[in-house]
Every structure is written in structure tokens, then in C-alpha cells.
């Protein structure tokens, strides 16, 4: 009986230890290996878009911040409304924090001008200054960024799905431009998981910053 209670105590300790271990996020993507043998993890490269107010948004905008990137378009007939609805929940949770951003990239940038995106943001009911809706005069550019930097697939296909095939994934990016997670933007439960993960990643970044 004595041993039994000890093993109970042990199990209890084990569990409490496990709980105190912070949640760690992988760095996603294929790392590069330099000639000297160092590994450099995959990073989001420099970018240049224009937001819903006509202002430029570059890597300088996200400097020192955690952000979510997603890809959508205003005329999207299938998954985008649900993505936008779920992102409103993320905005509600973190929209006022100055170390957090959302970048919603239009995959239909020639139609989705700054004015169109501004109307979309207003009518969606998104109010946070930290939520940027991005366009570019170069239609191919947004697809390059989506595939090469954010490692998502998609293409302008023609007839189906409003002419653009794309994914509803939300990409969580840390202050060092590393991809730390993918979440299904059309799934309310997975977006809840994202809302739980953001403060954990913020805590991890703060911890690293002070080391």
C-alpha cells in the first residue's frame, strides 16, 4: 500500500512536470545547409504588397511581430467567407495587440484593388488596424509568395471555384519570419486551436528574447 501511494505520487509528479513543459512549435520548411555545414531554417523572404488604404506593406511592417498570413479573394464563392468569419474571431482575440498582425493576401489582385479591399474589410466588420488586406499590381507575384515563402499550393485555374484554386490554410509566422504552424481556416475548431497557440508562441518568443 505504501509503495502504491508512492507510485501515485510519482505519477502525479510526472504529470505536473509534463504540464510545465512549454508547448514548442516546429520550424516548418526545408532548411538550407551552407557549405560550412550550418543549417538555415526556411524563412519568409522580403515581400512588398499594397494594403486596403493604398499604403505599402513589407517585411518592415511585420518586424518584431507574430502574424497570420492567409490567401483569399473578395469574389471567392466557396471557402473564403468561412475563413473570414473565423478570422474575425482571431481579430477579436488579438486585434488590439501591437505585436500581432493578420495579412490577408488577395489571389485576385487585379480585381481586388485597395478600394475593393477597403470595402470588403468594412463590410466584413473587421476594424483592427492590425488586419491588412493586401493587393499587388503583379498578379503572378502573390502566387509566387504563397508557394515559395508560405509553402501553400494554389493557381488561377479558370472555370471552377470562382476561377482560383487555393487552400484555406492560415499560416502562423513568428518574429524571425519562420513558419511555426498551419491551421485550417474553414474549421472553427482548428481556429480555436490557433487562438490558444498564439499566446504560447508569444511567450516562447519573449523567453527567447530575454535569453
Amino acid at each position: 500500500m505504501k509503495y502504491l501511494s508512492f507510485s501515485f505520487l510519482g505519477a502525479l509528479l510526472l504529470f505536473s512536470c509534463e504540464e510545465s513543459v512549454p508547448h514548442t512549435f516546429p520550424i516548418i520548411g526545408v532548411p538550407q545547409i551552407t557549405e560550412s555545414g550550418d543549417t538555415i531554417p526556411h524563412q519568409i523572404g522580403g515581400f512588398s504588397f499594397i494594403d486596403q488604404n493604398g499604403a505599402p506593406v513589407t517585411q518592415a511592417t511585420v518586424e518584431g511581430k507574430i502574424y497570420i498570413a492567409d490567401f483569399f479573394f473578395t469574389r471567392c464563392p466557396d471557402i473564403c467567407p468561412m475563413m473570414s468569419k473565423n478570422l474575425l474571431k482571431v481579430e477579436e482575440a488579438f486585434g488590439t495587440q501591437n505585436d500581432f498582425l493578420i495579412l490577408s493576401h488577395s489571389l485576385d489582385p487585379l480585381f481586388d484593388t485597395s478600394e475593393e479591399l477597403s470595402r470588403y474589410k468594412r463590410d466584413l466588420g473587421a476594424r483592427s488596424n492590425n488586419w491588412y488586406f493586401l493587393t499587388t499590381p503583379d498578379e503572378d507575384y502573390v502566387y509566387e509568395v504563397m508557394m515559395d515563402d508560405y509553402l501553400l499550393s494554389g493557381s488561377a485555374t479558370g472555370a471552377l471555384n470562382g476561377g482560383i484554386f487555393h487552400t484555406g490554410k492560415l499560416v502562423l509566422v513568428d518574429q524571425n519570419h519562420h513558419i511555426r504552424g498551419y491551421y485550417e481556416g474553414t474549421d472553427p475548431l482548428d481556429v480555436d486551436r490557433l487562438i490558444e497557440d498564439i499566446p504560447l508562441l508569444m511567450a516562447e518568443m519573449k523567453q527567447k528574447g530575454t535569453e
Partner: peptide, 15 residues
């Protein structure tokens, strides 16, 4: 449903 939502509430002033 993808636009008008499972609860029929639409989306803001978009839908």
C-alpha cells in the same frame, strides 16, 4: 451554406 453559413446568419454586410 459556404456563404450564408450553417446558422443562416450570413457574414457581416458582405452576405
Amino acid at each position: 451554406q459556404s456563404c450564408h453559413m450553417p446558422d443562416g446568419m450570413g457574414l457581416g454586410k458582405l452576405i
